[in-house]
Amino acid sequence: MKLSWWIKFLFTSFLILMASGCSVTTREIGSDEKVIYDEGYHFSDKKAIVADMVDSLLTRPPLFQSVDRPVLIVYGIANRTSEHISTSAITDDIRQLMLQSGRVRFVNKVQRSNIESEASYQYGGNVAAETRIQRARQVGAKYMLTGTLRSMEKEQPKQFRLKKKTLMYYSLNMELTDIQTGLIEWVDSTEIIREASKPFIGW
């Protein structure tokens, strides 16, 4: 075996490695464009999930029949997947679309302590009495919006192959509970199933 062949091979390998690391590209992506790199959760999934849930909430009872713009409170979506997914981003978008529909109102749970501190400040002696907010006039929520995001992952069994296939299943279950009666008044779910394959070998 010629030694020079080995040296050439090694040198060529290094050159290919260096060349492959040289190019950097960027491009703008529209918010409606569906971009999926792997089997994991993507921003386009959030849009699909939110659209499904808002549509179901507004076209089915009890909100479908309401004429008095019922008040809702969001108690968040529990993340039970194996990915760090910001579920508050889902509830923020749901709240935004539902508010924009003009059919419901929301209590601002996240800002409660800030509201309390602002109210205390107004009654601390620095604010003119006629401009102060009135205490004990906050609106109580009629419904509570909650949910659970779950995922299941299935990998191809170990065998000789060049690519690893993964099947990912996401399901978001949401429910609307009447706070006075404790009854679940609406429930729905949406699913995403995706398969991706990843190579075992690369440069």
Partner: peptide, 10 residues
């Protein structure tokens, strides 16, 4: 997880 041919050969 992706095995680098380059590294393995080197």
């Amino acid at each position: 997880e992706v095995i680098s041919i380059n590294e393995q050969v080197s």
